[in-house]
Design a protein around this nucleic acid. Structure first.
Lengths: 203, 203, 203, 203
DNA sequence: CATGAATGAGAGTTCATTCAT
DNA sequence: TATGAATGAACTCTCATTCAT
């Protein structure tokens, strides 16, 4: 019943094949869904009612279930995008800064990401088998990145302590827990993360 | 909520025994309730169904609501007791160890407590205004204790960094998040907490 | 929200213990529930929405689930009562008529019962494991009754064919399928059942 | 339901081939649909999700709705074909056997057909007005066939009882209810149908 | 004071049906 | 004409919370 945006591009200017149109709509919906989910997760956590997300995206609940049969599918999809961005940031930081500083900056960058995703850590630790894929993504994408940065920093003498990358990432995620989207919360998390980083340096 | 006619005669005119009995019963119930809640919270988190707790305690749900109108009241009551024990431990540690070590040992003691209380941190950060009293208890009992230990350690040159006690306590609580009652989880949390402590030492 | 009948018997005339009152209410509700379910099942089949039954009984859905966690529990309860009555009728018929006629009359009595319970046969054959208890009740209560009547009739030379009682009962139930509560439907079922009975007699 | 502009040029101006192709495709689809529906009905009953049928046939749901706007349309179409085969069988049986035996054999043949169509009887008796056409087909095709066989058998002295053909057919269909595709179920149904046939013979 | 039956809002999930492409 | 994405009504079931006894 919701009025879909009928962009109504004039027929003459339309160049894409008709078959594409359908896909375009679907993709648009999917995007709206991911955006909505991201927003709702940030506000109400990953346990927010499916209906809320559907409404926010302007679609029916059925559509959500069509694209993401499991809640975890949606969660994964939402977070994966940003995790990728986070992973990519490592390259730039490594190129621009010495190992120790690159490590710090990347961890802080990661902190920022996690802090903005209320409920991420909770989902990760929920024990719910549904979030396995998400956890796996952590291990296969983020952890290796941190491992690389750690190794470089240690080689440069900027880090003394041994630490398991996945464990460390989990700890940082946990430190962001409950720190709303407020600046105060952010700062709080950041301070604690810096303490953790300082700990790495200690002999 | 309307006060029903109190059919029972005034306490003064009653023989001591029945009155005692009643009070004793009530206290017993309350204790059973707290024990049950503690156990259930540990197993299923602080969001466990009220009925589960009531059944575990062998009382009706109504009784739970009578004693603890808000869920947070029950949670607070449950945790308060153990917090007190934790606070008390500080004295002994201060007497037995040098400031720096006393600090470490106490924080680890606190870590143990929090790790055993699945959901404590979550509740604390839930944003639900209902948990305010619990947070307050944190500030008024635990935080001053930590502040004292920190001050002593700093005076002894065992700590360099400045840190807000409440913030630090929250961070430690967060680090325990999702670390089930398993030994592995415990160790994981402990390792991260030690890192945090090491961070305090760094110049 | 539904206004419960507040019979409000004057306090002075009330003799039953207060504790009984609660039970009385509960039982009344349970009875209303069974009556409502019976009616709804007859009108809309055993797959009727739970809410419909709850509304008809004037209770909340939760109450239905409290008393009958599984849909099949409710169905069983509803039908059991009438099955018992049906079983009891056998004694009277046996006493009042010669074996062959007693058999006929009882089967017709049973036909009447089943015809009035739209959905009984369907549930029985749904394959849904949930209806097992109901099927079992068939085997343990009705089948033995029919077996007895058949044996007597055969001994008296009024029946020639061998037939498995449970199978026969199922067949009769099936014959009532789709015969609404109309007289026409009833008669239709009855005619076919008589044919079946006639078949028993054939050499 | 509004008629869309028929973009395709008129059939007459098109070359024969493409037109044929289209028709051929459509017919093929229709056939696949009927086959799929038959299979699905047999496995999951006539209430099976439309999508299941569409997938089985390798077409979109829209196609199902195009050919069979009402579910009953599909059901009717599916069963009609087999009913016709059943009707045709009567001729052969009449030619090959004496009236009494022809009757028995045909009824058993019909039993086989119905037993294989789980849900046919249910649909027939569902009360849903949508199945009227199917019921009508029963009356106009099968019932006359049975009537003919019955008349011949009666004329030959092989049947004593009067019985309405449609009613009898319905009864047989009902007896097949809930008898899965298993051999046991089949035999059960057959036994009961034989009893019914024996009843016809009784004086 | 305790009890636990009753209530009913709300969440998840499925599917018939429509309709833009 | 076929497709399948989207819709949303309808259903089941769970629990927090109230309140008569």
């Amino acid at each position: 019943m919701q009025a879909r945006t009928r962009m109504s591009s004039s027929p003459t200017t339309e160049t894409a094949a008709p078959a594409r149109r359908k896909r375009a709509d679907a993709l648009q919906n999917l995007d709206a869904l991911l955006e909505a989910a991201k927003a709702v997760f940030a506000e109400a956590g990953v346990d927010a009612p499916v209906r809320t997300i559907a409404e926010r995206a302007g679609v029916g609940v059925g559509t959500v279930y069509r694209h993401f049969p499991l809640r975890s599918d949606l969660i994964s999809a939402v977070f994966r995008r940003e995790m990728d961005a986070c992973v990519d940031a490592a390259d730039e930081l490594e190129a621009a800064y010495p190992p120790g500083e690159a490590l710090d900056r990347w961890v802080l960058r990661y902190t920022e990401f996690v802090a903005a995703k209320q409920g991420l850590a909770a989902a990760l630790h929920s024990g719910d088998a549904a979030y396995e894929p998400l956890a796996e993504y952590f291990s296969t994408r983020l952890a290796p990145t941190l491992a690389r940065l750690l190794a470089a920093a240690r080689a440069a003498g900027a880090v003394e302590q041994e630490v398991d990358p996945t464990e460390f990432l989990g700890a940082v995620a946990n430190l962001c827990h409950g720190t709303g989207p407020s600046t105060r919360g952010r700062e709080h998390a950041e301070r604690m993360v810096r303490l953790l980083l300082a700990g790495l340096r200690a002999s």
